[in-house]
Amino acid sequence: MNRGSTLIARWRALDRLHGRIENAVERRLHEDFGLSLREFQALTVLQAGTATAHGWLYLQDLAAEIGLSQSATSRLVARLETRALITTSAAAHDRRSVDVHLTPAARETLRRGMPLIHETVRHTVEALADEGADQVLLRYLRNDGGDGPPAG
């Protein structure tokens, strides 16, 4: 197999591994919190963003961080607000931005959810190893293959 074919094969293997891990995390978040992975990711991004000095962010920035369109992100924010996980208000400094505040329920969800995600990813990676998935990629995911991505 030439270098280009190896690269494509590795990319496809990575895509399959990512899909399996993402599906496992999605199922677990839905079972335990009734949240989608994107909703949970939005909470983590919002937590990081609101922890900064300014306490606000543009929806386009949130959309970019979680990989959704602006309209899909607006709907996601509305769902989080309906579920009382966030509160929003128009930002006084700029009409294009929204002040977002995590509620105590969201902070508790994040506190409980992060270890759950870690455990789910670890368990899924172990299961994938037992199934004979690409060992180079799995070693990288386990972080026992060095600090950087696998060569090759």
Rank of each mutant, 00 (worst) to 15 (best):
L116V: 09
A133Y: 07
R122A: 12
G145C: 11
L116C: 11
I117V: 10
L137T: 01
D144W: 14
R111Q: 11
P149Y: 05
T124V: 00
R139G: 14
E108H: 01
R112A: 14
T109F: 06
R139Q: 12
T109S: 10
A106H: 06
L128M: 08
I117M: 05
E108A: 02
L137G: 05
H118M: 07
P115T: 02
V125E: 15
R112Q: 13
E126W: 09
H118F: 10
R112N: 11
L128Y: 00
A133E: 12
Y140Q: 12
Y140P: 07
A151I: 09
G145F: 11
G146P: 10
L137Q: 04
A129Y: 03
R139N: 13
P104W: 06
E126P: 01
N143A: 13
V125G: 11
D134E: 04
R107A: 03
I117K: 06
L116N: 07
D144L: 13
Q135I: 08
G148T: 05
L128N: 01
A133V: 06
P150N: 07
R112M: 12
L138N: 06
E131M: 06
T124M: 00
E131G: 00
A129D: 03
V125T: 14
V121C: 03
R142Y: 06
T109Y: 06
D130R: 15
A127G: 14
N143R: 15
D144T: 14
T120G: 12
L110Q: 02
G113L: 04
E131N: 00
D134N: 04
T124L: 00
I117S: 02
R122E: 14
A127F: 09
A133W: 10
A105I: 05
Y140I: 15
E108S: 05
D134F: 01
D147R: 08
G148R: 05
L138H: 07
P149C: 02
H118Q: 10
Y140R: 10
L137V: 02
V125R: 15
R107Y: 00
V125Y: 14
Q135P: 03
R122S: 13
I117Q: 04
P104V: 10
V136K: 05
H118L: 07
E108F: 01
V125H: 13
R112I: 04
E126L: 12
A106D: 04
V136Q: 06
G145V: 03
N143T: 15
H123R: 11
A151S: 15
D147Y: 01
D147G: 08
A151F: 14
P149H: 04
D130Y: 09
D147C: 03
P115L: 04
H123W: 07
T109N: 09
R139H: 12
T109L: 13
L141G: 11
D134G: 02
H118P: 01
G132Q: 10
G132W: 09
R107D: 05
L138W: 04
